[in-house]
């Protein structure tokens, strides 16, 4: 343990951890809002809507997050006059915003597939039974399908959050001092590999927290199907 190094960079790494957390919370929550219409679009009978939603998910899932981040960050830099004309440059000038935007768009595609999969995985008999009780399609979706789909989506969603936590380290490449950014800085000053170990431990701790919270949520949501 190098105490001097810890003293110099420990507080900054915790600040970096907060930046990582902010990025992930923003991306996951805004991504969820965006994912719902995309998931519904994927299931739409309208071919145009379905096609658009499919194309979006296809393109985002088919390209690396790093490439998407570069595309948004340095791509926006190339369109500065146009962005200034519409008054959006002040947003795209900011590296944190560019990362939050990219990560949101990225996770929206993955979450859309998670939600679509979960909705389709609810047995058809459930809606048929509800229909026979005379419920309207809207009510069936809201009161029968969605509650069961939430349970099915829970685990994959936890996975997606974990992937996002780790994927957010890409932000360090475009000047954001997230946990990885601070770690790189500390390493470039000290040439001591320890800092990467600390970063790994902090990421691990974050993931462990998510894992435990998810266990709690799942126990709570499945209390009606538990045998004992």
């Amino acid at each position: 343990m190098n105490w001097e190094l810890l003293q110099n960079y420990g507080p900054r790494m915790l600040q970096g951890l907060m930046v990582t957390l902010q990025l992930v919370v923003i991306a996951i929550s805004l991504g969820a809002l965006l994912a719902v219409p995309i998931a519904l679009g994927r299931m739409s009978k309208n071919r145009l809507v379905g096609g658009l939603a499919f194309a979006y998910v296809y393109a985002v899932r088919g390209t690396p997050l790093l490439a998407q981040t570069f595309l948004v960050y340095y791509g926006a830099g190339q369109f500065r006059p146009e962005l200034q004309a519409v008054g959006l440059w002040w947003l795209f000038r900011d590296a944190f915003f560019c990362c939050a935007l990219t990560f949101t768009l990225n996770t929206a595609a993955y979450q859309a597939e998670i939600y679509r999969g979960a909705i389709l995985a609810v047995p058809r008999g459930q809606s048929e039974a509800a229909m026979s009780l005379g419920l309207k399609p809207r009510a069936i979706f809201r009161m029968v399908v969605v509650p069961q789909a939430v349970l099915l989506a829970l685990r994959p969603l936890g996975n997606e959050i974990i992937l996002m936590i780790k994927g957010s380290s890409v932000a360090a490449i475009v000047t954001v001092f997230d946990l990885m950014g601070v770690t790189r800085l500390a390493y470039s000053r000290s040439f001591d590999f320890q800092v990467y170990l600390w970063a790994a431990v902090l990421y691990l701790a974050l993931v462990e927290i998510i894992r435990r919270v998810w266990d709690l949520i799942e126990r709570r949501l499945t209390r009606h199907v538990r045998q004992h």
């Binding site: 340095y74 926006a76 830099g77 190339q78 500065r80 440059w89 000038r93 590296a95 490449i173 000047t175």
Partner: peptide
């Protein structure tokens, strides 16, 4: 990470 990227961001005004 590289000087090219610093240059790019100066050119774009970041």
């Amino acid at each position: 990470p590289t000087q090219d990227e610093v240059n790019l961001d100066l050119a774009s005004g970041r």
